[in-house]
């Protein structure tokens, strides 16, 4: 790692001020950022840890029934504390990485990084969640802009994410066992006003909604409704773990499994 200064503020305001320094970077749980720094793929002047900010911790149910999760909440905490209110999201959190990674990695870190194979972006977009930052609220549909790219401005911090709780939902992850990311992951959420289907791990553009599957399932919510649907492999990721065609095929299979899990 290149050398950097370290700061650990205890309020969002202090963190925002610390991030004003040139080339300063926010540090969530560091489960992606620290390996990145070790590879010398980034050279921040200062890391601003968000782990000491009490107002960014924890899971709570809002008056309107939605679930609010602090940006610095670990995956292990979400897996434990969201289980009663939003079991599919808790199950997603419980499948990230491994137990030790889940004790450090945070929801805000994962969502801000927007890794094209990360689990949380699928859950956030699939739930039509709202990303709350120190300055504004951003709808998930406007947040994820492409691989490792989001609507966040320089120095903007995800303070919490608010999830409307669907009637039923399921996350189906086809594990890439070496990285423990999703080779393909599909999140399906059924709300009173319709179904949302999101896909991670598959596209060169990062997480996306599979609108054809949503339309088909809105007409008829059963696995057979997807029978004739195929997703175009042109924009799929191809690497040594799977070709474009393989990933496109997996998207169909995992979506079908998600519907089955919701029946």
């Amino acid at each position: 790692m290149y050398s950097f200064d370290f700061e650990k503020p205890s309020t969002v305001a202090d963190a925002v001020a610390a991030l004003g320094a040139e080339d300063a970077q926010a540090l969530g749980g560091g489960q992606t950022l620290i390996p990145t720094l070790k590879q010398r793929l980034a050279a921040p002047s200062k890391l601003v840890s968000l782990s000491g900010i009490a107002e960014m911790q924890g899971v709570c149910v809002e008056d309107d029934g939605s679930l609010s999760i602090g940006g610095a909440t670990t995956h292990a905490t979400v897996a434990r504390e969201a289980a009663a209110t939003y079991p599919a999201l808790a199950a997603l959190a419980g499948q990230i990485g491994d137990p030790a990674v889940r004790n450090r990695g945070t929801i805000g870190g994962s969502v801000a990084n927007n890794d094209p194979a990360a689990c949380y972006p699928a859950g956030v977009l699939g739930s039509a969640a709202t990303i709350v930052t120190n300055t504004r609220q951003i709808a998930a549909d406007a947040f994820f802009e492409g691989m490792f790219t989001t609507a966040l401005e320089e120095g903007e911090i995800i303070t919490s994410i608010r999830f409307p709780v669907p009637q039923v939902a399921s996350y189906q992850k086809f594990l890439q066992p070496a990285s423990r990311f999703a080779l393909v992951g599909v999140y399906l959420a059924r709300f009173a006003d319709g179904v949302r289907v999101t896909v991670t791990g598959a596209s060169e553009d990062g997480v996306f909604r599979w609108s054809e599957a949503e339309e088909a399932l809105n007409k008829e919510f059963r696995p057979d409704a997807l029978m004739d649907l195929r997703i175009n492999p042109a924009n799929m990721i191809a690497d040594l773990h799977g070709s474009k065609a393989y990933r496109a095929h997996l998207v169909s299979v995992m979506t079908k499994r998600a519907v089955e899990a919701c029946m």
Binding site: F6, I34, P35, L47, P99
Partner: peptide, 8 residues
């Protein structure tokens, strides 16, 4: 449980 090579 934490991986100490991945925590400052």
């Amino acid at each position: 449980a934490v991986k100490s090579c991945n925590m400052l």
